[in-house]
Amino acid sequence: MKTLVLVPAYNEAARIGRVLAGIRAAVPGADVLVVDDGSADDTAGVARAAGARVVRLPFNLGAGVAAQTGYKLAVREGYACVAQLDADGQHEPADLPALVALIERGETDVAIGSRFLGATTTYRPGTLRRVGMALFGLLAWMLTGVRFSDVTSGFRAFGRDVVRFVATEWYPTDYADADVLITLRRAGFRLREVPVRMYPRAGGRSMHAGLRPVYYVFKMLLSVALAPVRREPAEQKRGLT
C-alpha cells in the first residue's frame, strides 16, 4: 500500500531536518513530501538534502493551502494513504506507524493523532487555548455526535477517498482543523483518534501569534456553524463513489 507522508512547512529550515530523519526512521517504506509554503529561508534545500520530495509554492498561501497541494499530488499519483504532520517538531514521527496502520487495515478513513488520549501526555496548553479547544470539541460533539479529545490536531492520516475529498474546492485555506473533522464526519467518513505525543515548539513562529487567535476563533465558529448547512460534502462524496 502506497503511503505518502506529507509535511507542510513554512520557514522551518532549522527544525525540519530532524523531523524528516524521524520520519525516515519511523516509516522507511513511505514516500516523504515537503510542501514549502513560500518560505524565505532554505526549507526546500534542507528538505531535499534529507531525501524528501519537495513542492514549492510560489508565495505564502497558508497552512491549509500547502497541505491541500500535497493532497492534490497524492490524488494524481494514486497514494492510498496520506499521513500529515507538522514540520516544526511538535509531532513525534515515531507515532506515524500507529496512524498509518489504522488506514492500511481499513479500520477507519481518518486517523487523528490526539495529544490528550494517551497516558503519556506531556502537552500543557495555556488557559486560553484550553478553553478554545474545549469549545470546539463541544461544538464538534454537538454537530457530529462524536467526542473528539483533540479537535485542533494537525497530526493525522487520510485514506484514499478522504484525500480525494479534501483535494476539492471546499477545503479551507487556513486553520483547517475542527471544521474539517465536522465536514468529513457529515460526509460519512469514519474518524478515529489515536494517542500521540506532542511537544512544545522548539522555536520559530507559531501560526497562533498576536491577534491571529481572535481571527481563528471567529473563522472556526463561522465555518463550524455553516458546516451543517453547506451543501458540498454530500454532493462531493456522491461524486466519488
Binding site: 510542501v35 520530495r53 514549492r56 509554492l57 510560489p58 491541500q68 497541494t69 499530488l73
Partner: peptide, 10 residues
C-alpha cells in the same frame, strides 16, 4: 493556479 504551478514545476 499557485498549487498547479508548484506541482507542475516540481
Amino acid at each position: 493556479l499557485a498549487q498547479e504551478l508548484a506541482l507542475v514545476s516540481a
